[in-house]
Simulated scan of single mutants.
Amino acid sequence: MDDSAQQTRPARSPGRAVGRVLGIPVRLNPSMLLLALLVTVVYGGYVEAELGLAGPFAYAVGLGFVACLLGSVLLHELGHALTARRYGIGVRGITLELLGGYTEMDRDAPTPRVDALVSLAGPAVSLVLGALGSAAAYALPDRTVAGQIAFQLAVSNVLVAVFNVLPGLPLDGGRALRAGLWALLKDRNRATEAAAWAGRGIAVLTALAVLTLYRLNLLTVFGLVFILLVVFTLWQGAGQSMRLARMTRRFPLVDLGRLARPLFAVPSGMPLAEAHRRAGAAGRAADVLAVADAGGRVVALVDAAAAAAVPAARRPWVSVDTVARDLQRVPTLPLGLTGEQVVRAVQAHPGAQYVVTSGEDVVGVLRVADLAELLEPRRAARRTAPN
């Protein structure tokens, strides 16, 4: 399954860099190794049984088939990436993972037409690969290693293309559906939510279909587990699309001037307990503790998590400096950024807090928890609700 529809993937591991293709970084998620092992074993056993090759040679063929599959997935993703670049959308990289891969772009498509073209470019590449594989399988002798690999590549690429054009996010067809709804409704976020609900509907129908096939003995246990894993990933991806659409709708509410917490500066060397006492006495307990030098210039921010981890009995003897982070090492956000720009900056430089500046002046600190509460109030309410 390809789910390159999603551009923002905070929950995913980026994977290990393995090189560049046409200047685009390519990464390999560790989950891909599990798929490589499964396909090698399953296809190697098939080759051993059907073509009569000895075990080591059969599994070597299985490994070669894995390499061909990886190449097919990479070409599919390059279809997305090169089309995006053609329309001025930067590409951060391609990641290959357990159920396919995804292309990470630095911004959304500017128009429904571009969104549709970028999304359908991948399935188009897979269809071309399927046609080439079919021609090769037809031309090569039957019951040969080359002929079998060509046939399997043809089938897998056609299946990938057909499945990916189903109209539901996070599939490529879901992006095309979103593009059409976006053009019709003039609201990208409403279109995204509708396409995501369609994706969940496809997940449910696919699960029912695969369970029926299994009960009719038309599908193996391996096939059942694999497709149900695809269904689960599809359901999760659709949910993430809904979540991102709801967050994007609230981007205009992001105002750094209002979100930034003011600083409560204390002298360098002050005990942590005394710093907390002074902030509380001044009614500034919710402010961000900062460390100032002898000239009164803020030079560091106290890490709230590190400070909270210090036992209460030790706080009178622990200096604020020991739980502070140098100001130069904290990411900076200038006042005036739009909500989307703030979120993009936070994604590019993940952290717990960000210095908010106006020119050379520090006006406060944005805590990522405050930003998350603004963008996802329902999620924040669930986290803080009593059990």
Rank of each mutant, 00 (worst) to 15 (best):
R329L: 06
R329M: 12
V330A: 04
V330F: 04
V330I: 07
V330S: 01
P331E: 03
P331Y: 09
P331S: 05
P331N: 03
P331W: 02
T332Q: 11
T332S: 05
T332M: 11
T332R: 15
T332P: 00
L333Q: 06
L333I: 09
P334H: 02
P334C: 02
L335M: 07
L335G: 05
L335P: 00
L335F: 04
L335D: 01
G336Y: 04
L337G: 00
L337F: 07
L337N: 01
L337A: 04
T338I: 05
T338Y: 03
T338D: 12
T338K: 06
T338P: 08
G339L: 02
G339W: 04
G339T: 07
G339F: 07
E340R: 14
E340H: 05
Q341K: 08
Q341Y: 00
V342G: 01
V342K: 03
V342D: 08
V343G: 06
V343I: 01
V343L: 10
R344N: 13
R344H: 11
R344A: 15
R344M: 08
R344P: 04
A345Y: 01
V346F: 01
V346Y: 02
V346I: 14
Q347I: 13
Q347M: 14
Q347F: 13
A348N: 09
A348V: 14
A348L: 14
H349W: 03
H349K: 15
H349G: 03
H349N: 15
P350M: 07
P350A: 10
P350C: 08
P350G: 04
P350Q: 13
G351S: 14
A352R: 15
A352N: 10
A352P: 04
A352W: 06
Q353S: 14
Q353M: 14
Q353A: 13
Q353W: 12
Q353I: 10
Y354T: 07
Y354G: 10
Y354L: 02
V355Q: 02
V355G: 08
V355S: 07
V355C: 06
V355H: 00
V355M: 02
V356K: 00
V356N: 05
V356L: 01
T357Y: 00
T357L: 03
T357Q: 12
S358F: 02
S358P: 00
S358I: 03
G359Q: 05
G359I: 08
G359A: 04
G359F: 12
E360M: 07
E360Y: 04
D361E: 15
D361P: 00
V362D: 11
V362F: 03
V362W: 06
V363E: 08
G364L: 03
G364P: 13
G364W: 12
G364F: 00
V365N: 04
L366N: 06
L366T: 08
L366P: 06
R367S: 10
R367L: 13
V368K: 07
V368T: 09
V368M: 05
A369Y: 05
A369G: 13
A369W: 00
D370E: 09
D370N: 07
D370G: 14
D370L: 12
L371M: 09
L371S: 14
E373V: 10
E373Y: 02
